[in-house]
Simulated scan of single mutants.
Amino acid sequence: MTTYDNPLHIPCTTIDNREITLAELGGKAYLVVNTASKCGFTPQYKGLEALAQEYGEQGLRVVGFPCNQFGAQEPGDEGQIAEFCELNYGVSFPMFSKVEVNGANAHPLYVQLKKAAPGLLGSERIKWNFTKFLLDANGRVIKRYAPTTAPEQLKGDIEALLKR
């Protein structure tokens, strides 16, 4: 397995099956979120899109990684997920193919993010959908946020990062 020094350089497959790295999105800050369409936190898509709209021109890149590991709350295929996000929440930020965030098949990006920013009591394990990671332009993880943290609660940290 290839290891990467920088999470922004890890190849990721977009929801429309193109391989890119987050660095190719050219951000000053990145908000990486594991998402699901049938979760109690799914309405956070609206807040994530609002952040992307409000701070996109300043360099924030919001990116969504659908995941079906929590309560099977993302059962659809990539086409269904993309359609759901666009129709229900007007999502315009980049969405990626479904990934696993925990376990032996965890995507390398999530392996690195969890190691850099463990959760409660030092656990690297992601507990649920809509866990968020804020990264700087160099790929350094600034902070990890719980699923219960609403996107609008991240504004102060995002603004501070974009001013650097």
Rank of each mutant, 00 (worst) to 15 (best):
Y145A: 00
P108S: 01
C12L: 10
R61T: 07
A116H: 13
H107P: 01
I158P: 00
P108Q: 06
G122P: 04
K163V: 07
Q73W: 11
N68T: 10
K38H: 11
A150L: 11
T13K: 03
F133C: 13
P7F: 06
A29S: 02
L161D: 00
A36N: 11
W128K: 04
Q153F: 10
P118K: 08
T149S: 10
F70C: 00
T131F: 01
K46R: 10
L87R: 15
L48C: 05
Y55A: 04
R144Y: 08
V33F: 06
P7S: 11
F130E: 04
E54W: 02
Y4V: 10
K163L: 11
A117Q: 14
K163H: 11
G56E: 03
Q80N: 11
M1G: 14
M1F: 07
G64D: 09
Q69E: 13
L8E: 00
I126K: 02
L161Y: 01
R125N: 12
E100P: 05
C39D: 15
L154G: 02
G122F: 09
E78F: 02
V32L: 03
N68E: 05
L154H: 10
N129S: 04
Y89G: 04
G119C: 03
G139L: 05
L113T: 08
L8Q: 01
E19A: 09
G56N: 04
V91E: 05
C67L: 11
A160R: 15
F41W: 05
G64E: 02
G79R: 11
E100M: 13
N105E: 11
A82S: 15
Q69V: 11
Q73P: 12
